[in-house]
Design a protein around this nucleic acid. Structure first.
Lengths: 104, 104
DNA sequence: CCTCAACCTTACCTTCTGGTAAGTACCTTA
DNA sequence: TAAGGTACTTACCAGAAGGTAAGGTTGAGG
């Protein structure tokens, strides 16, 4: 059952109050600046935004693009691997959709 | 993007240090007693085992079968919905497997 | 009467997560 | 010289998650 630990790893990556919210804003190849994300997710604090972005960058889901300009400009987008998450999340969604009818 | 909250809900259900470990022990229609699970997962404490089982029962993933005997006997197995999780977890696993080759 | 087995509950404590608020660095503009 | 905009960073705190240890219920067996 190393599958268990594999899935646990994946959950560990996706866990975090804001990861999925950020992901969904980035799906579809969108490229957003830090401040765009702040505006898109008003409830998030800068600390959390940066923290979750950094973690996802470290996990290889998100790519960080720094433009060395005077008013700093940093953009974020998904890596190919990050984009590939879509179908897997869909599978989870489909599973969740099964719930209502089949409840004993 | 209510998909985001949908997936968040699912993660909320699967989250928890021991849920997946227990799930994988129950996959395949297995029916296990409390003490079987304790033995199968030596690192878990009784408190955690019961807590995670109860949460999964509440979420409709696990079914609890009580036999009113003198040395109590309680069995746990997956509901149909719980079994249906398998393919979704497989999708996550497949996604995780994509990682190595495509790392830039 | 005492103990044991199996399942669960409770109290308490530590660690982790997320939240707020303030501060930093840099150059541009007034 | 002072203010401002962008992208962070830091210090501190509260609440939740998880861990340990002990207790409690029930009837059979000694």
């Amino acid at each position: 059952m190393s599958a268990a630990s594999g899935v646990e790893n994946v959950l560990r990556i996706l866990e975090g109050r804001w990861k999925l919210v950020i992901l969904f804003h980035l799906f579809g190849g969108k490229v957003l600046r830090f401040s765009d994300l702040e505006r898109a997710i008003p409830a998030i604090s800068q600390k959390m935004l940066i923290q979750q972005l950094r973690q996802m960058e470290g996990d290889g889901i998100v790519r960080r693009i720094v433009h060395h300009q005077v008013p700093p400009k940093v953009e974020y987008c998904l890596t190919d691997w990050g984009q590939a998450l879509c179908p897997a999340l869909d599978a989870l969604l489909k599973w969740a959709a099964l719930r209502e009818p089949a409840e004993t």
